[in-house]
Amino acid sequence: EADPRLIESLSQMLSMGFSDEGGWLTRLLQTKNYDIGAALDTIQYSKHPPPL
């Protein structure tokens, strides 16, 4: 049985245009305790590393 928090967070992320191919988004949301903001921060950080 999927956690209702996961279903809600995942559906919101999917509606933003993200995909869960391979389950990466599910794993990220689980790691971030279903916090969409924290997940988005992680995605943003990985796409744009800080300048040295």
Rank of each mutant, 00 (worst) to 15 (best):
S15A: 13
P4G: 05
I43H: 05
K32V: 12
Y45D: 15
G22S: 11
M13C: 05
H48K: 15
H48F: 13
I7G: 10
N33R: 07
M13T: 01
L6Q: 07
T42I: 08
G22L: 01
D35R: 03
I43D: 03
L52T: 15
G22F: 01
K32C: 10
T42C: 12
Q30N: 07
Y45L: 10
H48V: 14
E21Q: 08
A38C: 09
R27V: 04
S46C: 11
T42D: 15
T42Q: 11
D41M: 07
G22M: 01
D20G: 01
L6S: 04
S19P: 02
S19H: 13
S9A: 12
R27F: 01
A38R: 11
I43S: 04
P50C: 11
D3Y: 01
Y45S: 15
M13N: 04
Q30G: 05
T26P: 02
L52W: 11
W24F: 11
I43P: 04
W24T: 12
T26M: 02
G37T: 11
L28W: 02
K32M: 10
S19D: 14
E8D: 13
T31K: 11
P50H: 11
Q12F: 11
H48N: 13
G23M: 04
Y34V: 04
E21R: 07
M16W: 07
T42G: 08
D41C: 08
S11T: 12
L28G: 03
P49W: 12
F18Y: 15
K47Q: 12
D20R: 00
L14W: 06
G37M: 09
L10N: 02
I43Y: 03
S9G: 10
S19R: 12
G17V: 01
R27Y: 06
R5C: 01
L25S: 01
N33I: 00
N33Y: 06
F18P: 01
R5L: 06
A38I: 01
D3W: 00
P51C: 13
S46K: 12
L29A: 01
T31Y: 08
G37P: 11
D35Q: 01
A38L: 11
N33M: 06
S46V: 10
L10A: 00
L6H: 05
Q12V: 10
P49L: 14
D35L: 01
E8C: 05
A38Q: 08
P4F: 04
Y34W: 02
R5D: 08
S46M: 10
F18E: 03
G17E: 00
G37H: 14
A2G: 15
S15T: 14
M16R: 11
I36T: 07
E21G: 04
T42S: 14
E21P: 00
S46G: 13
A39C: 13
P49Y: 15
S9I: 04
T31I: 13
L6K: 09
A39N: 01
M13H: 00
Q30E: 14
Q12C: 09
G37C: 11
L6A: 08
P49T: 13
S46D: 13
S9P: 11
Q44G: 14
R27K: 15
A38S: 09
D20N: 11
Q44E: 12
D20Y: 00
A39P: 01
P51G: 13
I43F: 06
I36N: 03
L52R: 09
L14F: 11
T31C: 09
E8P: 09
P50Q: 13
P49Q: 14
W24R: 14
P49E: 14
L10V: 06
P4M: 09
I43G: 03
L40V: 10
A2F: 15
Q30S: 13
S15W: 04
W24Q: 11
Y45T: 15
L52A: 15
R27S: 12
Q12H: 13
S19Q: 08
A2H: 04
L29T: 02
T31M: 13
E21M: 02
L29G: 02
L14Y: 06
G37E: 14
R5G: 07
R27H: 07
S19W: 01
E1Y: 05
W24Y: 07
D41N: 10
Q44D: 12
L28Q: 02
T31F: 07
G37Q: 10
K32A: 08
A2L: 10
A2W: 07
S9Q: 05
I7N: 12
R5Q: 10
I36S: 07
S11L: 05
I7Y: 09
N33D: 10
D3F: 03
D41I: 05
S15R: 12
S19M: 10
D20M: 01
E1F: 04
L10P: 00
Y45Q: 15
Y34N: 08
P51D: 15
S9T: 11
I7Q: 11
D35N: 15
L29W: 00
E8T: 12
Q12Y: 12
M13W: 00
K32Y: 13
I7P: 09
S9L: 07
K32W: 04
L6C: 02
P4S: 12
M13V: 03
G23I: 00
Q44T: 14
L14G: 08
L14I: 09
H48W: 12
T42P: 01
Y45I: 15
G23A: 05
E21S: 09
A38F: 03
D3C: 02
I7W: 11
S11C: 07
L10F: 02
L28R: 03
T42M: 08
G37K: 15
E1S: 05
D41E: 13
S19A: 09
G17K: 02
R27W: 05
A2D: 09
F18A: 04
E1Q: 00
L52P: 02
S11M: 08
G22Y: 01
D41W: 04
G37A: 12
T26D: 00
